[in-house]
Design a binder for these strands. Structure first.
Length: 258
DNA sequence: ATGGCCATCGCGGATGGA
């Protein structure tokens, strides 16, 4: 099975790119973030016509998440049942048959804006509540993964300029403690099992020729349970869509399991 | 050239992203 995550920064703008990417990369589940559209605007017909199922949780202008899949999702949950939230940032579903089934959460984690902002406080509360929900889901689903735009780096190696970016948003101790809180539930950074080297990024600013100069951040992640880590055979960043006309500033991360 | 973004809402320019 294959799983992927991609922050598309507006599904309206990126829909043709998503359909094209799925044709070339027929993964079992693709988690999308930043749909930036209300639920009734979701292009379900376009996905169905291309042979895909989808579940989604959108809102106007901001946020919004979806799970695109070959087979229908089961046991779908939208947002964290343990956290009241005005934002559409989380969606869960189960995919695959019987004892091979995988429980998936797709998430668009809060940006946080700046360490001294109200949005940062919200990010911390959101992360703390997410940990509780993930613990609950993992207790019932050993084959578990959570993927998406985390808006957090694991460490200084995850940006192009740690000397200037450590301590700024996505690179604070407080955010990394929250991320480690998830990891301590028994999760593993899938990409690092297969791409241990430096300069592995998933986001590049639209400005300053950042992509051409590979001035990026690694903030999109797939965390997998022990059971899935054991059967993972590959995980990679697909930089190809970042070279498209009108690209998203994020690019997909793709996990393969046996 | 030596670097100056992009999407949304809505029609100018603020807001948010990261």
């Amino acid at each position: 099975m294959q799983f992927a995550t991609w922050n598309v920064n507006s599904l309206n703008i990126r829909l043709p790119q998503v359909i094209d990417w799925l044709a070339a990369n027929p993964v079992d589940v693709l988690a999308l973030q930043e749909l930036k559209m209300a639920d009734d605007k979701f292009p379900i017909d376009a996905f169905n016509e291309a042979g895909w199922q989808a579940v989604w949780h959108g809102q106007k202008t901001y946020n919004g998440v979806a799970l695109i899949s070959k087979q229908p999702a089961r046991d779908v949950i939208k947002n964290n049942p343990l956290f009241e939230d005005d934002h559409a940032r989380l969606i869960a579903g189960t995919f695959g048959d019987a004892d091979q089934a995988v429980r998936v959460i797709g998430g668009y984690f809060p940006n946080g804006q700046a360490p001294d902002s109200d949005k940062f406080v919200y990010k911390m509360h959101w992360m703390k509540a997410l940990r509780q929900w993930v613990a609950d889901e993992m207790s019932r689903h050993p084959r578990f993964l959570i993927m998406g735009d985390y808006n957090i780096t694991f460490g200084p190696e995850d940006t192009y300029s740690p000397e200037t970016l450590e301590g700024t948003i996505h690179c604070t101790e407080a955010e990394r403690e929250q991320l480690q809180g998830l990891v301590q539930l028994g999760l593993h950074d899938a990409l690092r099992q297969f791409a241990p080297g430096p300069k592995v990024y998933t986001w590049w600013d639209y400005r300053n020729l950042a992509f051409r100069k590979n001035q990026g951040y690694r903030i999109d992640h797939i965390l997998v349970s022990d059971a899935l880590k054991k059967v993972a055979t590959d995980c990679l960043v697909d930089k190809a869509p970042r070279k498209n006309e009108r690209p998203s500033d994020h690019t997909p991360v793709v996990l393969t399991i046996a």
